[in-house]
């Protein structure tokens, strides 16, 4: 398989997942707005959401001053945002088109339809009365693409690179999502563990699409320690960091089985996963949640880069052409 094809499929998987995660973040913001938490704490959750979406640099002003409408505009269709929902579906579709020969008609149709419909999004679509259905729509497009991949792609290298992209992206998104809490300033009179704090964690679970699952697993009220355990360490939660790393390691094992340019990504992935299996909530809180998450984000990034060098993403010069160009 061409390295460029692998790279395109990897990014197709990433963008598809990114659009889905954006929808979840917007949903979390929408609920923050509705639960009145922002009035009680005088904090701005949309700022945290913009930061979690990695948009603090593309957003035109200080995220702390963002209104819901401005944040949604930026996250859904702002042309200045290369990771808006529209941009993600456009990029997913561009990769699908470039790799049309490597994906099934179902995957192509799902990517093409998602692009064709979302590119017509306008201000109307994030107006308060339409926002919920817009979020649903985005998630349905992402779900259809995911379903098409799962249901129709041969379990070969093509599938494995899409899965790698998907789980690298999801690991990153889950880390950022949990980190949102760090960016929501807690006022002095609402200490950790207060009702507002509880509400925040509850919404985070919702944003991860995991509130019922949490109840199912722990059969308890929302507790900080359990939420951290669930979102980061629980192997059965498909959005947990641990689950993502399990999947990444498995796919990398499959891919490396038939040879590669180098094996840096295997080493990175094993080390990351090894560390996770030995970690517990006490350790994470001891290190500081934000510090722990920051480190995980950096390490997953390195992992993504080493996947690129292992399989020849980007231009690689052969030895002779390198000599010639020197």
């Amino acid at each position: 398989m061409l390295s460029r094809t692998a790279e395109g499929l990897f990014w197709l998987g990433r963008y598809m997942e990114r659009a889905d995660n954006l929808a979840r973040l917007i949903e979390a913001g929408r609920r923050f707005d509705l639960t009145g938490a922002h009035i009680e704490t005088e904090s701005n959750e949309w700022a945290a959401i913009l930061i979690a979406a990695g948009c603090s640099n593309t957003f035109e002003k200080d995220p702390e001053e963002a209104t819901g409408a401005e944040a949604c505009h930026h996250l859904i269709l702002d042309p200045e945002n290369p990771s808006s929902v529209q941009a993600c579906f456009a990029a997913a579709r561009a990769n699908a088109r470039a790799q049309r020969g490597s994906i099934t008609t179902d995957v192509w149709a799902a990517a093409n339809d998602a692009w064709a419909d979302t590119r017509l999004f306008s201000e109307r679509d994030y107006a308060p009365r339409n926002l919920a259905s817009t979020v649903d729509q985005i998630r349905q497009y992402a779900a259809r693409m995911r379903g098409a991949v799962e249901g129709t792609m041969l379990r070969d290298e093509r599938y494995q690179f899409m899965r790698l992209g998907q789980f690298i992206e999801r690991a990153d998104a889950t880390s950022r999502l949990v980190d949102v809490k760090y960016h929501v300033l807690m006022p002095e009179d609402h200490p950790v563990g207060s009702g507002v704090d509880q509400l925040h964690w509850n919404n985070l679970l919702l944003a991860a699409g995991a509130r019922s699952a949490y109840r199912w697993v722990y059969r308890e009220q929302v507790q900080v320690r359990l939420v951290i355990d669930f979102l980061l360490l629980n192997r059965r939660n498909p959005r947990s960091l641990r689950h993502c790393l399990d999947q990444i390691q498995a796919e990398l094992g499959n891919l490396h089985g038939d040879g590669a340019h180098s094996n840096g990504s295997l080493t990175h992935a094993s080390a990351l996963r090894e560390d996770m299996t030995r970690t517990d909530v006490d350790f994470i809180l001891g290190q500081g949640l934000h510090e722990y998450l920051t480190e995980m984000i950096v390490r997953s990034n390195k992992l993504a880069i080493s996947i690129g060098s292992d399989f020849g993403f980007g231009p690689i010069l052969s030895e002779t052409t390198q000599e010639q160009s020197q």
Binding site: S3, A260, F311, G312
Partner: peptide
Amino acid sequence: VELVEGQDLYVENDRVWMRTIRGP
């Protein structure tokens, strides 16, 4: 057959090679 772009190919010893995930 493979659909290649110029960036996927290079010439070495008068033969043309594709860059694949496993090597040339």
